[in-house]
Amino acid sequence: MTDPLSRMLARSPHVLADGATGTALMNMGLGQEPAELWNLTRPAEVARHYRAAVDAGSDLFLTNSFAANASRMRLPGLADQVTDLNRQAAAIAREVADAAGRPVIVAGSMGPIGEFMAPMGSLTHARAVEMFHQQAEALREGGADILWVETLASLEELRAAAEAARRVGMAWCGSLSFDTAGRTMMGVTPSQLAAAVETLPNPPVAYGANCGIGASDLLRTVAGFVASGNERPIIAKGNAGVPHLLHGDIHYDGTPELMADYACLARDMGVQVIGGCCGTMPAHLCAMREALETRPRGPRPTLDQITAQLGAFASARH
């Protein structure tokens, strides 16, 4: 157990991850510019966002580098700043984590490249590895503890990210977004992901699902991971409801109380890394932390119990 997440999981039955980076920065005034540009232009606000997650009880938080790859930074004219954007995202995070007064893990965030992988598209495995490797190297240089690959839709892209992590010698975590009737946009099922991570030369420390549609649907995906028999630690980072625009700010309708219920249901299903995605703010994280620490563990919930507490599934599974 050479990586900090494995060591933390050995000491604790669950780890609380963070919430939404994009939602938080938009509520701080982020406009049309890429969120990652703030690492260079408004580092104090990025640090404030990181500290809010730590102060809310997160044991792990993601760097502001989700879209900072050469492909997605090309359109806004920032492709030549990819290394600086990622390195600075991690450096700001490292300073915040080191000042926390307790162990806090800096997870270097890498999202989808934004192109279709071959043969459906023109993105080759080699080029995908190259772009992920550029990000990973800069995140490592900035002080990230692990790499965190999330919101992917294809196993091919996940394999490219895994190869990049192997090249920089870093432990990593990976999650897909299951937002299309229980599958990813590219048709991957939870059981297929659970099987695929075990075929990698460097399997992730933990794997799972993030974003998607809502908390109920995400836990239905988790049920698929559990049923697969894979005993690798599971990640669950569900959205805090549905977005609405209120007084110029983006708000999600998932209450802190709902996310507290979601966190405990995830824990009772066997999830070890629990966090939130879009719309999950510090108030949600505080409620999740308190619930995880004060509510007794219960039996594994059924799908009916999940929908009774969190609401109906958004779509039928195919």
Rank of each mutant, 00 (worst) to 15 (best):
L155Y: 07
G270Q: 08
G169E: 11
E290P: 02
A136M: 12
T255L: 03
N27Y: 09
A165I: 10
G19V: 01
A161W: 03
T83A: 13
M186R: 11
H318P: 12
P203K: 11
Q192I: 05
F178N: 06
L303Y: 03
L16P: 00
T255A: 07
S175P: 11
A206H: 01
V82M: 02
G208L: 12
T83W: 14
V149L: 14
Q192V: 09
S154M: 06
F225R: 03
A162D: 14
A240T: 04
T221Y: 05
L75N: 14
E115L: 15
E45H: 13
P119M: 11
D253L: 01
V104F: 03
G114I: 13
K237R: 15
G169L: 09
G187M: 03
T307H: 08
G248V: 00
M8D: 05
L37M: 10
P76S: 08
L193S: 09
A162C: 13
N39R: 10
R127I: 05
D98E: 15
P204C: 03
W38K: 03
L258M: 15
Y50P: 01
N27E: 13
G311I: 02
T124Y: 05
H49Q: 15
G29N: 04
M281Y: 02
C211F: 02
V205P: 04
P301I: 02
A236T: 05
G121H: 01
L200M: 12
R51N: 10
G182I: 06
A10L: 07
A107L: 07
N86F: 00
